[in-house]
Amino acid sequence: MTIVSAPIEPPSVEPPLSLEPSSRRLGEKAIVALLFAAAALAVLITVGIVLAIAGPTVEFFRQIPFSRFFSTEPWAPNFVPDGFGVYSILAGTASIVLYSCMIALPAGLGAAIYLNEYASHRARKILKPVLEVLEGIPTVVYGLFALAFVAPLLQQIWPTFLPGKLGDPPGFQFVLSAGVVLGIMIIPTVASVSQDAMSAIPGGLREAAYGLGSTKMQVATKVVVPSAFSGIVASFVLGLSRAVGETMVVLMAAGAIANLTLWPNDPVLTMTAFIGRTATGDVGFGTTTYYTLFAVAALLFVITLVINTISIALVRKFREVYE
């Protein structure tokens, strides 16, 4: 092997050798500062949310006492006589969460088990994008679907033979139609977080069970689900949080009447729907109704913050075990 002798001089370290920075690299420092500022914006947004909500909320409670807000009095902030009992719209939210989670949690878990343990590689390649599309449909379209298709359908097939209140046919807006649609809308969220947890289980655990002659069902129920338990719970909590925070479907399909009820055929007003509905109307800046908007938003924010913190803590706990 020959090497053409290169015309470049052999490297020489010319004295005085300096290893100090050849420039102050101010550009580099400015860039780091900019990047940090961008990341810190996330904190700023949170602070912004808290500040934006806090001021008007304080003002609200200056006008309306705590005892009236946290009470069962009617919810009618912009009527005469007015009423500010938040329990009615909390009940609306609870009712929506109840019916949607009754569908989303079991179906999401089932879908996750199927995807992780049963589906062939090819089936998974088709099913996952389908779930992603399901997740990507705009909520306003779901709302239209619930209002214009699901609600009339449920009205027609309502089991009127049922005794008492349950047998009354619903009106054109009621909890169940919104709950069903919302529940199905949340399935992909629950399924994907659950499945992430299941796929993070070390393969050895599964193989050990199969090696002992377990059936697929036994592996799924006795190994996979218990091992991924905190991840699954996290997905449930996340689904719950989405049900609490969703606006459009409930705004369009669940009704506009604040109702202290859990019946599936009643219309309800949720916290989010109240905010959405009030905002679309004419709200004078500085009126009590305007401040009510923020008080409800504050409650909503606190509730979801608590739920999310639980969910994040669960996911972290799960990671600690397996990573």
Partner: peptide, 19 residues
């Protein structure tokens, strides 16, 4: 914060935008 923001209900951002 980023994790938490990802799960804040969208309508709350509307409130922030409004205020």
């Amino acid at each position: 914060n980023i994790q938490n923001l990802a799960a804040v209900p969208s309508i709350v951002f509307g409130i922030l935008g409004l205020a």
